[in-house]
């Protein structure tokens, strides 16, 4: 069971916590460990769709979720990330569509395994 692997990412996965350089103001995501001159920084969760696809041949563990929408999202603060789009249909999605972060269940590692939570994005709700 890969417990530590998921646990150590919790701040980034659950609440999109990246890092900010207080000197330059630069923001990065994902956070990189070990450098003290970068400080934890919660990103706004706002972004736009850079590109997207519908995954119809899922990897192991996601058979019940497929087909699902995968996207690259350009975050308002600059970094780009890969995440699923949820609560929407492919017909609603276009490149540059504004989206917002939600925390969802990413993986169910089985009856004796962990539930892995993390960020997904959806079209803005209001």
């Amino acid at each position: 069971m890969d417990l530590a692997k998921h646990w150590r990412q919790r701040a980034a996965r659950y609440r999109l916590e990246g890092q900010r350089n207080p000197t330059s103001g630069a923001v990065r995501f994902p956070p990189e460990p070990g450098e003290t001159d970068w400080q934890p920084f919660a990103l706004s969760g706002q972004g736009t769709v850079y590109s997207f696809t519908v995954v119809r041949q899922p990897p192991a563990g996601l058979a019940e979720e497929a087909p699902y929408i995968l996207a690259m999202v350009k975050l308002a603060e600059g970094p780009m990330i890969t995440a699923q789009l949820t609560d929407c249909d492919p017909e609603q999605i276009t490149i540059d569509l504004p989206v917002e972060m939600v925390t969802r269940r990413l993986r169910d590692l089985g009856p004796d395994g962990l539930l892995v939570y993390g960020y997904k994005f959806r079209p803005q709700i209001s």
């Binding site: 850079y50 997207f52 696809t53 990897p59 996601l62 993986r107 892995v116």
Partner: peptide, 30 residues
């Protein structure tokens, strides 16, 4: 598919259900 997806970033891509085919598809759309 799971094994092939290991060629991408396990922590920040593959965990989200990303596959190489899906990534090429996103590049194609872009």
């Amino acid at each position: 598919e799971d094994g092939l997806a290991l060629a991408s970033d396990a922590d920040w891509e593959a965990v989200h259900g990303s596959t190489l085919t899906a990534q090429w598809a996103m590049l194609m759309r872009r």
